[in-house]
Structure formats: structure tokens, C-alpha cells
Amino acid sequence: MRKTSTARTQVPVAMQLTPDLVAKTFKLVEDDGPEPNWTPISPQQLDELVNRVEQEACDEEIWVFAYGSLMWNSGFEVAASDDAVAYGWHRAFSLRIERLRATSDAPGLMLALRPGGSCSGLVLKLSCETKEQDLRTLLAREIRYSEVCDMVRWISVKTPKGTRRALTFWASTKRSRITEKIPLDDAAVLIAQACGPAGSCAEYLHRTVLDLADRNIFDRNLWQLQQMVAARLRALP
């Protein structure tokens, strides 16, 4: 998937990936447990990761850069939020999955940050009163396996109030087997086919693009991708 820049602008036309098309991707899927060949993060490892992030925060406020599902489903009480742009990064469907919204028979893709371009999104502030618990909840959701603890990092983002240091989740180059660059054509195939116990990848794409559109954020790659996935789903019986 090529690098792309995102900007706050009027979305050009109506989405082609409609709720009716997304509904064609839904099916009942049993939970088959963790991703194959990966080790679920232990409570001790999660504690260590929480402690590491807290130490890196240096007792300052913790802001999280949201560019995908965290924008429309943060999973924690947001104390404050602001528009933000991450320069030098772009969102891409480059995280391969076989669980949650996919299966081993029909693998799928989720979003991650990749180097290059720019990415418009939000920064979300963790409440000072519940910071440790909210941070633990966030990390448990985003870092499910011990092998991918390096996929959480700090970046600088531009906001209307100035530059902020924000925590985010990226496609670490150390995990090339599951975070490689994927052409849009191949991504569309995987997203159109994948569904798991948490829903389908097409639903994830639809909700993300719709949320971006509601915020007047136009992501060229994601907009093209929803058109390609819609075309594949329209061709289904």
C-alpha cells in the first residue's frame, strides 16, 4: 500500500461501501483462541509494559494518537481530545490477522501506522484519575501478544494547540511477517473475505472511513480501498 497524505477537506462523493454491502460479509464465527504461533501477553508482561510507558511519560499527561478504531471506539473514558496530524506517518491496512475479524481460512487486515506521508486523526487524553487502569486497558487491547510489545511507541503530532507527544501503535519493521506493505488490490481481497467473532474487516473499514468522512478527513488510500472492496462485494451472489 503506497504512502498517502490525509487532510481535512470535504469528502468528494458518497461512499460506495454501504451498510448493505457490509452486511454481506457477516457470518457466525467461533472464537478459535489466540493468533497462531503467537504467545498471548501475560499479566506480568502487561504490567511491565504499563510500567515502561508510565516511566517514559515522566509523570506527564498521557495522550494517545488515534487514527483508526480508537477514533470511534476508544475503549476508555476520554478526558479531552483534539485534532492532530502525524507528519512522517500514514495509516495503512498492513497488519495481517487470523483472529478477531478474520480466521486462518480467511485471513484479513487491520490498520497500523507506517512511516512516510502524513496522517490526520485525533489525540485522546487519558484521565489523570484513572490513567493507570485506562492505560492497562488500552495496551491489553492493542498489544495482545508478547512478541509485538515493540509495536507501541511515542510520536510527535501537530495539534491546534501546538506539538504533543503521543502514544500510538505502528507496524514495527521487526515484525515483517505480519506488517509488510500490501498492494491495494491484495488488501481489498483480504478485507472483503475476512470475518471473525468480532465482526468483519469490511465493517472495520466502513466504520473507519465513515468516521473520517464525518470529521472531513479524506484519506486517499482508504477511500480507494472502500471502492475496491465495495466492487468485490457487489459481485458476490
Rank of each mutant, 00 (worst) to 15 (best):
M110T: 01
L100H: 14
A231L: 09
W154S: 08
V157K: 00
A188T: 02
A230V: 04
L222G: 08
W38F: 13
W223P: 06
I217P: 02
N216E: 15
A187P: 03
V152A: 13
R136S: 05
L167N: 06
G75A: 13
V152L: 13
I178Y: 01
R215W: 04
F169I: 07
P40V: 05
T168M: 04
P40M: 02
E61C: 10
R232N: 01
V148H: 09
A194W: 01
R52M: 13
T39H: 14
A7R: 15
L109C: 01
P19F: 06
R101S: 00
T6V: 09
L139D: 01
G199F: 04
L109Q: 02
F65W: 07
L236C: 01
N216M: 09
L109H: 00
R220H: 14
R96F: 08
D47K: 10
P19W: 08
A213H: 14
V29S: 03
Q10K: 12
E180R: 12
V11F: 11
A106T: 14
F76W: 09
G121H: 03
S127P: 03
M151C: 14
L126E: 01
I155D: 11
E60S: 15
T208S: 09
K3L: 12
F65D: 09
V157P: 01
R101H: 04
D214E: 14
P36A: 07
P237K: 02
A171H: 00
S94H: 11
P197Q: 08
V152N: 10
G116A: 08
A194K: 06
L225Q: 09
A198V: 07
D134K: 04
I97F: 11
L222I: 11
D186Y: 13
E35D: 07
R215V: 00
K3W: 12
V189R: 15
A79N: 11
D211Y: 11
W72E: 05
L205A: 05
Q10Y: 11
M1W: 05
I182P: 01
T39N: 12
F76V: 10
S200K: 08
D20G: 11
G33F: 01
I62T: 06
I41W: 03
V148A: 12
E98N: 10
Q16N: 13
